[in-house]
């Protein structure tokens, strides 16, 4: 049984990423349950997806201190979800901050670095990913979700393998964006 939280900002592709994890797990014979943020928050607000893999799960929401892994699409959003992480849990986090309009307007110097420092001080199993570099190597900012999935699957804490993920991505994504997403997946898996 695996509990996985995906946390990001509306528009970063968390919903698709959570579906891919759940479908890849189902293809391996597991049952899956997810809960998504859909609606107003998708316009640049905080979005959190809960993915639960296992056969005897009731709640679509993951209880606090239970998540095996948090995939943070943005540093502060990973921190916001920290109460969900179990003590031995893993965090994969994209290093680039998404500065909210409220921060730009108030002249706040939020750039995510203090969030990464905080995560370093709290989480032993932490991997910070330069998602921006992977995206520019693949030629599109839209592959961030798949790159992070790659980094997450490489930790071995998702019950699914690189090959499982690749198979689901091939089945799910339209052919015109497939090549760049597979490249992002492999760069995410290899990211060190």
């Amino acid at each position: 049984m695996v509990d996985c939280i995906l946390a990001g900002v509306g528009g970063q592709g968390t919903v698709l990423a959570s579906k891919i994890i759940a479908e890849a797990a189902m293809a391996k014979g597991y049952k899956a349950r997810t809960a998504e943020t859909i609606g107003m928050a998708q316009r640049g607000g905080c979005v959190v997806s809960h993915v639960r893999i296992g056969n005897d799960i009731h709640s679509p929401l993951i209880p606090h201190k239970t998540a095996d892994i948090i995939i943070g699409f943005e540093p502060a959003e990973a921190v916001r979800c920290l109460p969900y992480l179990k003590d031995t849990g893993v965090i994969i986090v994209n290093q680039k901050a998404v500065k909210p309009v409220t921060a730009s307007l108030s002249d706040s110097d939020y750039d995510g670095s203090e969030m990464l420092l905080f995560l370093r001080s709290q989480v032993e199993n932490l991997k910070i990913v330069d998602g921006e570099a992977i995206c520019s190597a693949c030629g599109s900012p839209k592959v961030l979700n798949i790159a992070l999935l790659g980094a997450a699957v490489a930790t071995g804490s998702l019950l699914i393998s690189y090959a499982d993920l690749e198979r689901t991505i091939r089945a799910k994504l339209p052919s015109r964006v497939l090549a760049m997403n597979l490249q992002a997946l492999s760069l995410g898996v290899e990211y060190d």
């Binding site: 920290l82 309009v101 409220t102 939020y110």
Partner: peptide, 18 residues
């Protein structure tokens, strides 16, 4: 009662026009 680390001040992120 759950014990959580005290989180640093997080940016407020209300939904906005794209």
């Amino acid at each position: 009662r759950e014990e959580h680390p005290v989180l640093p001040e997080l940016p407020v992120r209300p939904p906005v026009l794209c």
